[in-house]
């Protein structure tokens, strides 16, 4: 690991000030909170920041609270374990608890923050290893025609790594927003606009600027009768990233689906919203047959690589089951 200067701050504004100094050069100064992804990136020399700004001392940013309008406000420093253990979250937003309880391990969930979870970099072995791949500024994505069993089946990016977060699909299915602190103040950004497929000019999975800090994740109040589910398939039962996952959040009134959100994990460079599946569900009576139709719609545009064709039926079945689980319809 490279040497660096280490500065501790006690609030988000101080952090933004330090990030903006020295021209706000990308990568020069980085925030450290849980550190569980940042330090692995530094250990592998994928990044070498000259200064780390320790945000963990900003204790006021660690909270979970429901506002009067039913919205859940998640402080950026709340840990995955905080979400996993919160009785109110379990009762009102079970999809969030389901999404974090199989993420990583108890130790990592105790360390990792919610905001950091959204910012983690992909686990592609070419990206994490020595090859100077496209995502790292190189000319070529080596996974595209290489070893790609864990890679993307959707997306237009030159990169085919998949986004590793379990929490992100669930938060997207809940229409979450981010509060972002930057040099010109606080802005609100829908999570859907935060994620962004890496492009030639921006080889990164999100739109957060180098001099900005996420301070809060806000989940809007859900209508009466709303329920959600998150299902994840791993190649072992613990400590594995999703081969594929499915988040489903449904609002049902008198048996009719008023609103549906279906988001897939482990299938693209960003959490992948399946709007065709949502359209198939909206306004309909939820039946096992409808869930099957919607799951087929969710995977209709999939374009698997040489070694990951298995992800298509896997993700399809996860979507089907997540829809039925969210709608409390018994299923095999």
């Amino acid at each position: 690991m490279n040497t660096f200067e280490h500065v501790t701050v006690t609030d988000g504004n101080e952090a933004v000030k330090l990030l903006s100094e020295r021209g706000g050069a990308a990568g020069e100064t980085k925030i450290i909170a849980g550190g569980t992804d940042l330090l692995t990136l530094m250990n592998a020399s994928l990044i070498a920041p000259q200064r780390l700004v320790n945000l963990k001392a900003a204790r006021a940013l660690r909270y979970l609270r429901f506002a009067e309008d039913g919205a859940l406000h998640i402080g950026a420093l709340a840990t995955l374990a905080d979400l996993e253990r919160d009785a109110g979250v379990a009762r009102r937003l079970p999809i969030l608890v389901e999404s974090v309880r199989d993420a990583a391990t108890p130790q990592l969930r105790a360390m990792a923050t919610v905001a950091g979870n959204l910012l983690q970099r992909p686990r592609c072995w070419y990206f994490r290893g020595a090859p100077h791949c496209w995502l790292k500024g190189g000319a070529e994505c080596f996974a595209r025609d290489g070893e790609n069993k864990y890679h993307a089946i959707f997306g237009a990016s030159s990169c085919v790594a998949v986004h590793p977060s379990d929490l992100a699909p669930a938060l997207l299915a809940l229409d979450a927003e981010l509060l972002i602190n930057g040099p010109s103040g606080v802005r609100t950004l829908p999570l859907a606009a935060f994620f962004h497929e890496p492009t030639n000019d921006a080889r990164i999975e999100h739109t957060l600027a180098p001099d900005e800090v996420i301070t809060e994740i806000r989940v809007p109040g859900q209508p009466e009768g709303a329920n959600g589910a998150y299902l994840k398939m791993m190649d072992r039962q613990a400590w594995a990233f999703a081969l594929a996952s499915a988040a489903a959040q449904l609002s049902v009134e008198d048996g009719v689906i008023q609103q549906a959100r279906i988001v897939l994990g482990g299938v693209a460079t960003v959490p992948w919203r399946a709007t065709q599946a949502e359209d198939a569900l909206t306004g309909q009576q939820l039946t096992p047959e409808l869930a099957r139709t919607a799951a087929e719609a969710a995977l209709a545009g999939a374009a698997p690589l040489a070694h990951n064709g298995y992800k298509v039926p896997l993700a399809r079945e996860l979507v089907r089951r997540a829809i039925l689980r969210a709608g409390s319809v018994p299923h095999p």
Partner: peptide, 27 residues
């Protein structure tokens, strides 16, 4: 492993199990 995969470095911080390989001592 020294990358948060194996648990051999587990210690307790304020009673909670964490990986000491992914924890900076200054923090």
């Amino acid at each position: 492993c020294e990358m948060g995969n194996c648990g051999a470095c587990t210690v307790l911080l304020d009673g909670e199990a964490v990986y000491s390989c992914l924890t900076l001592a200054v923090e």
